[in-house]
Simulated scan of single mutants.
Amino acid sequence: MAVTIKDIAQIAGVSHSTVSRSLNGSNLVAECTKSRIIEIAHDLGFEFNANARSLSTRRTGTIGIIYPESFEDFDVNLYYSSLHNLIRKSLEREELDLIVAFPKNKFHRYSSNIKRLVKSNKVDGLIVVNPSLDEEDINALNLMKELGIPFVFLHHFPTGSLQNENVVCTDHFRGGYLATEHLLKKGHRNIACISTAEKWEEFVNRTSGYKKALADYQVPFKDEFLLYGDRSFKSSYQAIMNCKDRLHRITALFAETDLMALGAMEGLKKLGIRIPQDIAVVGYDDIELATYFTPFLTTVHQPRERIAILTCEMLINLIKNNNCQKEQLIIEPTVVVRESCGGNI
C-alpha cells in the first residue's frame, strides 16, 4: 500500500501541512522538524513530487501571487510591499505558503510565469495583482478555470474577457471623489490635480472622481489645472516647477499618489508657497511616508488590511468549494485628515 502524507504526519505527530511544507523545503518549518519528517519519509520509501501534489489532499498548500513588472520601482513598491506583508500574514494564519512571481520569465524568452505555475501544479490558487495581461497570460488563466484552479484579482479590476472574474479592489473613482470633495467642503474652488500620463485604470478612475466632485459642486473643470507626473516624487516636483506661473490661481491640490503629493509639497516649499495656508494638499494611498514629512499629509486611505483579508478568504473559500459564485468586492476608501489641508473640516 502506498505511503501518504497522512501516514507521515501521524508518525511525526504533526499536521499534514507541516509535512507538505517540510517536503517542499519551506523555511516556515524548523530545521529539526523538517529533518525528522524527511527522515521518516525516506525510511517509509515515500517519494514526494510537488508536481503530483499531496497524495492525501491533492493540494500543495501553496498560493501564488503575480505582481506587475513595476513592483520593484520605488513609487510602486511603497504601496505593494505593505499590501504583500498583510497577504502573507493572512495566508500564514491558514498555514499556507506563498510563491511570489511576476508576469514574465525574463531569462526564458519572456514566457508566462502564470502558465508555468499552472502546468507544474505548484499552486492551489492564484492572486493576480497585475493591471495588464497579454494573450498568453489570459490563456493561462482560462486554463486554470478548465482545471478548477481558482484565482482572484486584487487591487486592479479585470478587463476584457476576464471582467466578470473574482476581484477585490478599492473604489478608486470614489477615492478621487472623496479627496476632491474634502477640499471643496473646505471652501476651495481652484483645485488642481496631479495624475499620471500612463492611462492605467486606477488613475483614470481617480481623475474621473475628481472631475465628478467638481461637477457636483458646480465648479468648472479646467484643463490647465490637470497636471501629469509618472507616480514618482521627482515627476510631481517637476510638474510644480513647470506650472509655477499658474500656481497663484490654485488654492488646493489633489495628487493621485502620496509620493506625488510629497514631491509636489517639496516643490511648493521651494517656491516659498506655504502648505496649507497658500495651497492645501491631499494625497492618495496613505503610505507610511505620509507622516514622515511636514506638514503631515492628508490622504485617501486604501483599506489594505481589509482588502488583503477579503482576498485571501475569497481564494481559500474557492479552493475548498470551487463551485462558489463569482464575487466582485469594491471597497470604499476613506479620507485621513492631517495637517496638509488645514486640519479637520
Rank of each mutant, 00 (worst) to 15 (best):
M1S: 14
K6T: 10
D7H: 11
A9R: 04
Q10Y: 00
A12F: 05
A12Y: 06
G13F: 06
R21I: 03
L23H: 01
A41E: 04
F48A: 10
S54W: 02
L55T: 14
L55N: 15
T60N: 11
G61H: 08
T62L: 05
I65K: 06
I66K: 04
Y67V: 13
Y67P: 05
S70T: 14
D73W: 09
F74V: 15
N77M: 13
N77R: 13
S81N: 03
S82H: 11
L83P: 06
L83K: 04
L86Y: 11
S90F: 05
E94M: 10
K104H: 13
N105F: 01
F107A: 12
R109C: 13
Y110V: 00
R116I: 05
D124I: 08
P131E: 01
E136T: 06
D137C: 02
N142H: 13
M144C: 12
K145Y: 03
K145Q: 14
G148K: 03
I149A: 03
P150R: 02
F151K: 03
L154Q: 08
G160H: 07
N166M: 09
V167R: 02
V168N: 01
D171Y: 03
H172Y: 13
F173H: 13
Y177A: 10
T180V: 09
H182Q: 10
H188Y: 11
I191E: 03
T196L: 06
K199Q: 15
K199E: 15
N205R: 14
T207C: 10
T207R: 14
S208Y: 09
K211G: 05
L214R: 06
V219M: 02
K222Q: 12
K222E: 14
E224N: 07
L227K: 06
L227Y: 06
S236R: 07
Y237N: 09
C243S: 13
D245A: 07
A252Y: 02
L253M: 11
F254R: 04
D258F: 03
L259I: 15
A261P: 01
M265W: 02
E266W: 00
E266S: 14
R274A: 15
D278N: 08
A280D: 04
V281I: 05
G283V: 02
D285A: 02
P295G: 04
T299E: 03
T299G: 08
T299H: 06
R304V: 08
T311R: 01
E313Y: 04
M314A: 11
I316H: 10
N317Y: 00
N321H: 13
N322Q: 14
N322W: 02
N322V: 08
L329Q: 10
I331W: 03
E332H: 08
V336L: 13
G343V: 01
